[in-house]
Computed example of a mutant assay.
Amino acid sequence: MDVPGWPLDDRGAAYGDGLFETVLVRDGQPQLWLAHVERLARGCAVLGIPVPERAELERLLAAAPPGLQVLKLVLTRGSGGRGYRPPLPPTPRLRHQWLPFAPDTRNWVEGVRVRLCHLRLGSQPLLAGLKHLNRLENVMARAEWSDDAIAEGLLTDSDDRLVEATAMNLFWQRDGRLQTPWLGRCGVAGTLRDTLIERLGIDEVDVSVNELRKASAVWVGNSVQGIWPVRDLEDAEGVALANWSLNSVHRAFQAEAHALLGFETCFEACFDTRFDNLGK
């Protein structure tokens, strides 16, 4: 049965032919909005889907519920075409959803336990970095564990190169340098990740999991939850690979990221203190 406003022949539902964005919105003010709009436009250029009018997006924001919300935008090519052959011209369909949100501040403070996933991400440079609707790999990876004590799973490609977490990007510090996986083959280039790369000069590196074990600090994060410091790393069988004691380096990186998301007051309240920014 068709869902109202979302016909069964929509190409996003049938083929994953589309893009999505999840935007943190505080009292009608979207966080990292320009980065989200730019990533959506990049995806549209690659897929050949017309970019939504900025006025249409602004109208959605004008109707934002009060408080802290997550706005999910789903843009598909619409209906039409024959089989995999897309319609020319496309008639895009934009849907949205508002969800109330509260960050997991316990993970901010205590850090998290993460594991490696069995699943390996496929390589497709043309789609690398985009937040497209083909997320079955992430779904299958997240289905590998049900233990709530494990907050995230780390994904590698077929050559065992680090890529990302199932729903977050990955960061670490080694020899005094901040690093994050290079995403030239696969993975989602998060808006928080890209902004932090620009602000802090984070190095994008193409490395294996073994390099991560040499890091002095590790984090996972995205533009909704903020940054979670990693306390424990396990392999896919639950065998401990590394652990880290949380320190001022972890907190300084969190403070930089959380200021970008408007979480700075909430973050500092968790510790009743202020944290000096990295490199300041």
Rank of each mutant, 00 (worst) to 15 (best):
I49T: 14
H36W: 14
E110Y: 09
A167K: 08
E204A: 11
R59G: 08
R120A: 01
L57K: 03
N243I: 03
D17G: 14
A41E: 06
R59W: 02
D272A: 15
G18R: 08
G238K: 00
G67V: 05
L116I: 01
V51L: 04
Q225F: 00
I197A: 00
P30S: 08
G226Y: 01
L162E: 03
V74Q: 10
N134Q: 12
K280G: 15
G111R: 10
W33A: 07
V249H: 11
V114W: 03
R106T: 10
D203C: 07
L75R: 06
D159T: 12
E211Q: 13
V188P: 05
P89I: 05
L99K: 15
L116Q: 10
I150S: 06
L61Y: 02
W182N: 02
E144A: 03
E58A: 15
V23N: 11
E137P: 11
L241C: 12
V37P: 05
A215R: 05
V25A: 09
R77L: 05
S208M: 05
V139R: 09
G129F: 09
E21S: 09
E38A: 15
N134V: 04
A102F: 10
G262W: 04
S146Y: 03
R115H: 11
P125R: 02
L192E: 01
V114I: 10
T156S: 13
C44W: 04
S245T: 10
L200K: 00
N134P: 02
G5V: 03
E198R: 11
G28R: 09
V239H: 10
T191D: 02
R59D: 15
C266I: 10
G83H: 10
A62M: 07
V249R: 13
N138E: 14
T91L: 13
H258Y: 07
R39K: 07
V218R: 00
P30F: 06
L126I: 11
L126Y: 05
L60S: 06
V209L: 09
G184K: 00
L40N: 07
V74T: 12
P87S: 08
I197Y: 01
V188D: 01
W219K: 00
P125T: 05
D203L: 13
R77G: 01
E110I: 07
D157Y: 10
Y15S: 01
G78W: 00
R120G: 00
R26C: 12
A143P: 01
R85Q: 12
W98G: 02
R193D: 04
R42A: 12
T273D: 13
P7A: 12
W219G: 00
D194A: 05
A236G: 00
L73C: 06
G129S: 09
W182C: 10
P92D: 04
V220T: 04
P229R: 05
W172T: 01
M140Q: 14
I150G: 06
A13N: 07
D159V: 08
I49L: 11
D175W: 04
W108Q: 13
D104Y: 13
R161M: 08
T105H: 11
L196D: 03
A13P: 02
R82E: 13
N134F: 15
D17R: 15
T191E: 04
L130N: 07
V23L: 15
L170N: 06
R95M: 11
W6A: 15
C44Q: 09
T191R: 00
G80F: 07
R39D: 06
Y15E: 03
T265P: 04
S223F: 00
